[in-house]
Design a protein around this nucleic acid. Sequence first.
DNA 1: TTATTTATGGAATATTTATTTCAAAAATAA
DNA 2: TTATTTTTGAAATAAATATTCCATAAATAA
Lengths: 281, 281
Amino acid sequence: MTKVIQVKPPRVFSELKPWLQDHYQDLPKRLQSVAVFAMHNPDVIALNTIASISDQVGVTPSTMVRFAKSIGYQGFSDMQIVFQESMRHVPQPYSERLNSMQRSADREQTVLSHFTQAAAASISRLEQNVDESALLKASKQLAQARMVYIAGQGRAEPVVAYLHYTLVKLGVQSVVLSGMPHSMADKARMLKTDDVLLAISFSPYTANTRELVDICLLNNTKVVALTDSTLSPIARADDFHLEVLEEEVSGFRGLSATMCLALCLAVETGRVRAELDKDVK
Amino acid sequence: MTKVIQVKPPRVFSELKPWLQDHYQDLPKRLQSVAVFAMHNPDVIALNTIASISDQVGVTPSTMVRFAKSIGYQGFSDMQIVFQESMRHVPQPYSERLNSMQRSADREQTVLSHFTQAAAASISRLEQNVDESALLKASKQLAQARMVYIAGQGRAEPVVAYLHYTLVKLGVQSVVLSGMPHSMADKARMLKTDDVLLAISFSPYTANTRELVDICLLNNTKVVALTDSTLSPIARADDFHLEVLEEEVSGFRGLSATMCLALCLAVETGRVRAELDKDVK
DNA sequence: TTATTTATGGAATATTTATTTCAAAAATAA
DNA sequence: TTATTTTTGAAATAAATATTCCATAAATAA
């Protein structure tokens, strides 16, 4: 029979680490090898098959299973889950992070904290992922426009309103297209070659905004797009598009990171515009 | 037979992303779903089984295999390797983290980082300072309303739009007052005793919103206020008001924390409303 | 409309992967 | 030393997972 049967094995990687430190000495030789390898290469444990891992460690698959069981896991696969979960958060805080936070914080979480966590995560990701040069190029494009036409519906509407408000305050001429009762074709006709369309659209992408962008692209009108995915139909490789993805909480996506990016875009546009105006004098 | 057979599928994740951008439009509907999901949740593709993933996407396992093959991979497993490899090196827990810190320290701050930091700080403060019970009381108030009238101008307008959008989606009846061309007194007259005014206002406080709140208070109409200071003229001790203060960057105030609070308020209202509706049955 | 192609889901199948078993090798105790 | 326990590897088995195939549905073209 097996020696030690742990009743409650560590369910998170951060607890597994000290456990191994404590019990390392008592483990048989081969299991010690596995322990050392696992602490040094957690990603391998998370991503490879038992055969591949045991090969790298220099033991047999059975030993891997025994190792897991000696800690108290049901088997190798059960242990592997802990390693996998530990990876999920590290690169980017996706939804799984929220789940684990929920679990760890014993229900005492306030209603608000779910949303602030998601917002903070979204903003952090925005900071890491945004293409700074795309932001600058987009700002330049907007700053050079004779008039900025802003379009967006549904969840994008607040963003439209905010961009419009801020751009106007900064002395950048802009109008909101969404509210007007014209057909998309009519709207597109309003845009002259030295105008720019600023389109905001999130999944599920509304047909109107999409159509508007399509027409503008056909007419060679410049388009700056703000969307939640490069796969969005309004994102085109040859245009200026900015991407921002909001973390969701039980199905709801906020606008915290989006608003942050919008402000940044507007302010930068205002700055470039001010420079241009100065040169003219 | 399958349509496009890619001879050389992207072997690294960073190449796969633009590939999907280019071909997204041409993909069948289900394959598009998979593409969007994969770009939004690369960790899930990397770590889960085909059954679990297809379940999350809402397609069949066959579709996952087809998706991989349409890109040119031998099958799902072949594609999964690319996702897994993209995770492997990303999580360098300590050494890499220090490096990136160092990098950001000596390199000049990006334009965006000023704003993300301000946003993050605002959200963090919101989490710490918000009166949870006030949030719950306000939600209850809104949920019980026959109709929610939302008012706010200027910088508050995006918040109005967002609250309106979200409340409607959640089945809470609401209308936006700001856009209407009536006098404040006329607007106030619209509100019956079982209605609630949801007023959003930030410094400098617009006279209109202030006036509206005053009239409603005189008429004993319930008011829920969202503002940036307890000193705000629309905040009254006997009413339900929520406070959120945005950090400013060279004179500009964002809306990240405000939007977070707005979403929270709306969702909580929707939740309470759903409970009330259930009880009625 | 009808014919033809393309896309999709479900089930059967093949493959991979983990687990168990058992005999033999080490290690330990008497 | 021998007896006993523990550890280990190899092969057999069980479980899971991915892939293929086919009938049908949907979309498109004639």
